[in-house]
Nucleic acid binder design. Structure first.
Lengths: 203, 203
DNA sequence: AGTTGTTGCTAACACACGTTAGCTTGCTAT
DNA sequence: ATAGCAAGCTAACGTGTGTTAGCAACAACT
């Protein structure tokens, strides 16, 4: 009999959820089967159901874990008495850090949320929309304060968020540059653009 | 009997491929069934096989259509006697335009290529890698010419390509801003960054 | 030692999937 | 008119899916 390994404070369910994240990222939610997951966990497929209610529950778990972390962060950042550019900087660095340290979860939440079932689906989409609105509001504030140039804030948010999800390819690749170098590069490009420019005062 | 509508120069197969792109985008390749596709086309599932060899063939078709268009474009742009920044600008505008005018195809090619079968899979991944290398080379050239600031070129490419794939959300949303405005905004942000800067000579 | 709850197993279900076989219908050109 | 091809149909196949039922082994505590 092959019991799931369990260290302190890590429930069997957590092990399954973690393995599910890896699998869902590799193959996609639909293509990853419960039998695949069972094999990854080291158990028969039916045994999984002693710990989880359904395959979709795994997706809920993953998606809302990620969404909640981002929501808490933007709560925190919004409340700080710093400039708009600094807020953007903090959020971007948080996104990058999440992408690096919770790669599988974030990736799955980003690409597979479509397969959520409907009470959860609408909920997730709502949270996403609200998050983007709040991020855009920060940028609009920055524009009003003339810290940020006049651009469409919503577009800027989309660009930045999707740009960061591009680290996926970096992560998978041969990790030529370090995480810190990557982070600084990304911020430099996203905030500063490609073309050279003199440093702007107050940053 | 429900024949597939056919206008001049549009084969039955083309109709199927087009509908497949829409379906694969909506539900994902794995989740979209041949019976779904058949219904979208207005025909029974088995009838599709008079025109196509397999479900995967549809994915091949879509992915390589897109890949080929990008390859031809970068051939063209590389050959032009213009500055690196102008080359980047042209490529970005092409990406945006492709995303807008061949939305479904580009989206599917971007997100669902993982489900290609293996002679095609490696081929596609190769083309992708080569494309990115060539794009990065343009940027590195620009850095050497001091048109572009010192950043990691590979990271810059990933950022820009993924940023553009973010238009997906714009496309789906209420189209608040026009396509041209969107394009200019994106270029402004990606090339120029968020912070205000004086215009750089020679652009 | 025995009881109890947890976690595993095997077997099986009902269903959805991609695909094939074989036949029929309709269009086009002789 | 009719032959021949294009394109549709129904029926069915094998396989893989998520999930359930029922039972067996283990761990912990009395």
């Amino acid at each position: 009999m092959a019991r799931i390994k369990t260290e302190k404070n890590i429930s069997r369910k957590d092990v399954i959820v973690t393995k599910a994240a890896i699998l869902f990222r590799e193959k996609g939610f639909k293509a990853a089967s419960m039998r695949d997951l069972a094999e990854a966990v080291g158990v028969e497929a039916a045994s999984l159901y002693n710990h989880i209610k359904s395959k979709t529950e795994l997706l809920h778990e993953l998606c809302f874990n990620v969404a909640n972390r981002f929501m808490h962060k933007i709560d925190e950042v919004e409340a700080e008495p710093i400039s708009a550019i600094e807020k953007v900087d903090k959020l971007l660095r948080f996104h990058i850090s999440e992408m690096i340290h919770h790669y599988e979860e974030v990736y799955v939440s980003d690409r597979e949320w479509k397969h959520l079932a409907d009470p959860y689906l609408s909920n997730f989409q709502n949270q996403r929309r609200i998050y983007r609105k709040r991020f855009a509001a920060i940028i609009e504030n920055g524009i009003r304060q003339k810290e940020i140039k006049k651009i469409d804030a919503a577009t800027a948010v989309l660009i930045m968020l999707h740009a960061i999800s591009g680290i996926e390819s970096w992560h998978r690749s041969t990790q030529k540059i370090s995480a810190e170098a990557l982070e600084d590069n990304m911020i430099a490009i996203l905030v500063g653009g490609l073309t050279p420019q003199p440093p702007v005062k107050g940053i």
